[in-house]
Computed example of a mutant assay.
Amino acid sequence: MATHPRPQTLAIIGFGNFGQFLAKTFVRQGHRVLGQSRSDYSTAAKELGAEYFKTADEVLDQNPDVVILCTSIMSLKTVMKKFPLQRLEDCLVVDVCSVKEYPRDLMMEMLPPSADILCTHPMFGPESGKHSWKDLPFVYDVVRVCNEERQKVVDDFVLIWELEQCSMVPMTSKEHDSFAASTQFITHTTGRMLAGLNLTSTPIDTKGYESLLGVIDTTIS
C-alpha cells in the first residue's frame, strides 16, 4: 500500500464540473486546494473545503506546489496565453486533457524552462468516478523534471491517484494518442448514437443494458 504523500498546495485552473470533482478528493486527502476560473465558483469551493480566487495572480501568490490546467483541449491555448506563465518557474504544471501530444507540445513551448511538466489523463469523470476511483485508469507522462528535489513533488502528486487505487498507467503522450485514436472514437461515437435513442433505466434492466447506459453517461454527461 502506498504511503500518504505530504500535504500539497494544489491550484486548479478551471474550477468547473471536472475541477470540482478532482478538488473533492484532493481536499479529502488533506491537501490545500485553490480554485480559479472565469465564472464565480466561490460558493462551490467553500462547500468543498477549497479556497477560491478571482485571478490567476491571486492564486499564484499562494505559492502552489502544483498548478493543474483543468480546461478543455479547445480552450487550453487561450487559457495559457492569458495566464501569467512567467510565474510558473520552479512549479509543477499538470494538464488533464483527453489527448496528450498537443498539450505536451504546448506546455513545452510556452512554459518557462524551469517549470516541471506532467501530462495526465484521468480516464473517468464525475459520473464514472462518483463513488470510487478504484481500478479506474490514470494515464500519466512525466515530461520534464528539472532536478532531483522537485521529483518529490511529482511523486507526491502521482501518489494521490495511487492512494485512490486507480489503475496507474505510465505511458508516453505519443503512445496514449495512438491508442486513444481508435478506442475513444468508437466509444464516443457509440455513446452519441445511443443518446439519440433517449434510452432510460427500467426496473428490469439487464447488465448489458446498464452497460449501454453507462457508455452514454461517460461520453455525454
Rank of each mutant, 00 (worst) to 15 (best):
M1K: 13
M1Y: 12
T3G: 09
T3Y: 13
H4P: 03
H4S: 12
H4C: 13
Q8L: 15
A11D: 01
A11I: 05
F15A: 03
G16P: 03
G19Y: 04
Q20W: 04
F21W: 06
L22D: 03
T25E: 15
F26K: 06
V27N: 03
R28M: 09
Q29G: 00
H31R: 09
V33M: 11
D40I: 01
D40Y: 09
Y41I: 05
S42Y: 11
T43P: 06
A44M: 14
A44K: 14
K46Y: 13
K46D: 14
E47P: 00
E47S: 10
G49Q: 13
E51N: 00
E51S: 00
Y52M: 06
F53P: 00
F53V: 00
D57C: 04
D61E: 12
Q62M: 05
D65Q: 04
V66R: 07
V66C: 05
T71E: 14
I73G: 03
K77I: 02
T78W: 15
T78M: 15
V79T: 03
V79N: 02
K81V: 07
F83S: 01
L85D: 05
R87L: 15
R87I: 04
R87H: 10
R87C: 05
D90G: 03
D90A: 10
D90W: 12
C91P: 02
D95R: 08
S98I: 05
S98C: 08
V99T: 13
K100H: 07
Y102T: 03
P103A: 03
R104W: 05
E109S: 07
E109N: 08
D116S: 05
I117D: 03
H121C: 13
P122W: 09
P122E: 08
M123T: 01
G125N: 07
E127R: 10
E127Q: 11
S128D: 10
K130R: 11
K130D: 07
S132D: 12
K134V: 06
P137C: 09
Y140M: 11
V143C: 08
V143N: 07
V145N: 01
R150N: 04
Q151A: 11
F157Y: 14
L159K: 14
I160K: 11
I160G: 08
W161E: 10
W161F: 15
C166R: 09
C166S: 07
S167E: 15
V169G: 01
V169H: 12
P170S: 04
P170H: 10
M171P: 06
E175I: 08
H176S: 08
A181R: 15
A181E: 15
A181G: 02
S182T: 06
S182R: 11
T187L: 15
T190Q: 14
M193E: 14
L194T: 00
A195L: 13
G196M: 04
L197H: 09
L197N: 07
L199R: 08
T200V: 14
T202D: 09
T202N: 11
P203C: 07
D205C: 11
K207Q: 14
K207M: 15
G208S: 12
L213P: 01
T218F: 06
T218I: 13
T219M: 10
I220D: 02
I220P: 01
S221T: 08
